[in-house]
Amino acid sequence: MPEQKLKRKKIKATEHLKQVMADYFYRMDRISTGKEEGKLAWCTSVGPAELLRAFDFEVHYPENHGAMLGATRLAMDYIPVANAIGYSPDICSYLTSDVGAYLRGETPLSKAYPGIESVPRPDVLAYNTNQCRDVQEWFEFYGREFGVPVIGITPPHCLVEVSEVDIADVVAQMKAMIPTLEEVSGKKFDIDRFRESVRLS
């Protein structure tokens, strides 16, 4: 019996999601290039995006950019560029491909979204080392490149149980980020806006 070819079913939401993503990247580009008012923060995938959104930052996730580099099969072109300035081949390929692409002045965003020439320029970088330690070094590289503040959270690792002490530690680190975010955004921290941001997250 001949093998039947499977017909891929088109997902109805695809076109809508493409437009959502285009709007998102083009808005960041407009803010980054001064064509639209706003502030831009870079954030790691595990946050603290809710805190940034409470200050009305538009948020860019460099790990998504690293994933784009992998999906477009460009990562291997850029990883050696980062290796050449001292980044180990043994660390996160998202970091090294992203840094390498930046050093070469290239991004897959340009092909996906005509008119975008580079990753958006941050006003502040906020990391959380919960998923890996490399993100701190990654963001510190860009902090030096762009001359902007780098703030972050280094939560306790490998916990069997989360204690009140652990929670208090992370809360204190988040609170310590607030003065920098107030200064960069020009806005005072509003607990209700933060609660709403968490609710929507």
Rank of each mutant, 00 (worst) to 15 (best):
P2A: 12
E3I: 14
E3S: 12
Q4L: 14
K5I: 12
K7T: 14
K9S: 05
I11S: 13
A13Y: 15
T14F: 12
T14G: 06
E15N: 12
K18R: 13
M21R: 12
A22P: 00
D23Q: 09
F25L: 03
Y26S: 02
R27W: 01
R27H: 10
R30M: 11
T33V: 10
G34S: 11
G34R: 12
G34Y: 13
G34W: 14
E36S: 12
E36I: 09
G38L: 09
G38D: 08
L40V: 09
T44A: 04
V46Y: 07
A49Y: 00
E50W: 02
D56K: 11
D56P: 05
H60D: 09
Y61F: 08
Y61W: 02
E63R: 03
A67C: 01
A67V: 04
G70H: 05
G70F: 06
A71S: 09
A71I: 10
T72I: 07
L74P: 03
M76G: 04
I79K: 02
A82T: 02
N83P: 03
S88G: 06
D90M: 05
I91N: 00
T96M: 03
V99N: 03
A101V: 10
Y102M: 11
Y102N: 10
L103E: 10
L103F: 06
G105K: 04
G105E: 01
T107R: 02
L109V: 13
S110Y: 09
A112T: 08
A112D: 05
E117N: 06
S118L: 01
P120E: 10
P120F: 08
P122W: 14
V124A: 05
Y127D: 08
N128S: 11
N128W: 03
Q131A: 15
C132G: 10
R133T: 15
Q136W: 12
W138Y: 15
W138N: 06
F139E: 07
E140P: 07
G143N: 07
G147V: 01
V148T: 07
V148L: 10
V150P: 01
I151V: 15
G152L: 02
C158M: 12
L159E: 13
S163M: 02
V165M: 11
D166W: 00
A168F: 11
D169W: 13
D169A: 10
V171N: 03
M174Y: 05
K175G: 00
A176S: 12
L181Q: 11
E183F: 00
V184G: 03
G186T: 02
K188E: 15
K188G: 12
F189R: 12
D190G: 01
I191H: 11
R193H: 08
F194H: 09
F194L: 07
S197W: 04
